[in-house]
């Protein structure tokens, strides 16, 4: 036996660096490139009218995507309203009430499947359940499709976050004579608060960029979303339509909408990170 030489170790270290640093850089570079493209091409389209006016017919200058922005906000909000409580409750069940029960095992497995299901399939599913029977595309159907996408994400993060709360905290609540539900709501939720909020924010950020599920459900519209039982304008399908169109004005607006969505998702994600960091600081 002889001691490993310093050169040998150095060589191995350098080899690993050479392999890893470019890999990391490629990841960042792709994101930077996308951001650069979207900003460079989209920033020009973001006039005040872009946010407030209705789209104009092809060839006519001006107008905006106010209806699509409002529609996306409405449907995302509704989806969060629909998906979050169910996801939270299911997550609470998985972690607090029946962690090792048979039903929990089944639910956990299906949740994983649901998370991995391509969103276009969710779109087609909602199409066959909420669009075909009523004979028209609607904002409600769009919101439901997005809610189905939110549900498993919230469920999983809720379970994970509640699992992080030490058992001793649960036990000391119960040992004081508090019923399980009060311990869960009053103590465990409070302890996991920031994690739960983060989970919801990330889920919402994820679905706000979904196109496929809306293509089959909310479709799109040139008008303000007066009623959600009508086809409802939204940004992602608008991007899809406008980007494929031969009109340069529409293409510019598609870039503008892309920029807006990208920045919004980024903002929500950064917000979620801040919430996490805040939590770490206090802990």
């Amino acid at each position: 036996m002889r001691p490993r030489s310093r050169t040998e170790r150095r060589a191995a270290d350098t080899a690993m660096r050479v392999a890893m640093v470019p890999a990391a850089l490629i990841g960042i570079a792709v994101l930077a490139w996308i951001l650069w493209e979207v900003i460079a091409r989209g920033i020009g389209a973001l006039t005040p009218a872009f946010f407030t006016e209705l789209p104009t017919p092809p060839g006519m200058e001006g107008g905006g995507l106010g209806n699509a922005i409002l529609g996306t906000l409405l449907m995302t909000f509704l989806a969060a309203l629909l998906g979050t409580p169910i996801g939270l409750l299911a997550g609470v069940f998985l972690c607090e009430f029946g962690p090792s029960s048979r039903i929990a095992t089944v639910v956990r497995f299906t949740t994983n499947l649901l998370m991995g299901t391509p969103s276009i399939i969710i779109g087609i599913f909602v199409y066959s359940v909420l669009v075909l029977p009523f004979g028209r595309f609607s904002g409600w159907a769009g919101a439901v499709a997005l809610a189905i996408l939110i549900l498993p994400v919230v469920m999983r993060t809720t379970e994970d976050m509640l699992n992080l709360v030490p058992d001793e905290l649960r036990e000391s609540g119960l040992a004081l004579g508090a019923p399980r539900w009060r311990v869960t709501l009053g103590i465990i939720f409070r302890a996991a608060r920031t994690g739960l909020v983060t989970g919801v924010l990330l889920a919402v950020a994820r679905v706000s960029g979904e196109t496929a599920p809306l293509l089959f459900t909310a479709l799109n519209s040139f008008y303000w979303p007066g009623s959600l039982s009508q086809p409802t304008a939204n940004m992602t399908v608008t991007i899809f339509n406008y980007a494929m169109s031969p009109y340069s004005d529409w293409q510019a607006k598609a870039w503008g909408a892309s920029l807006l969505i990208t920045v919004s998702v980024l903002a929500v994600t950064v917000l979620a990170r801040f919430v996490i960091r805040d939590k770490r600081k206090r802990a």
């Binding site: 030490p166 609540g173 004579g177 009053g186």
Partner: peptide, 28 residues
Amino acid sequence: LKLRKKVGMIFQRPTPFPMSIFNNVAYG
């Protein structure tokens, strides 16, 4: 619940609830 009111328990690691000092004691 009555049993646990009558029998208090203290754990290895301190387990303050994530709330104010006052509310910790007022909780029970």
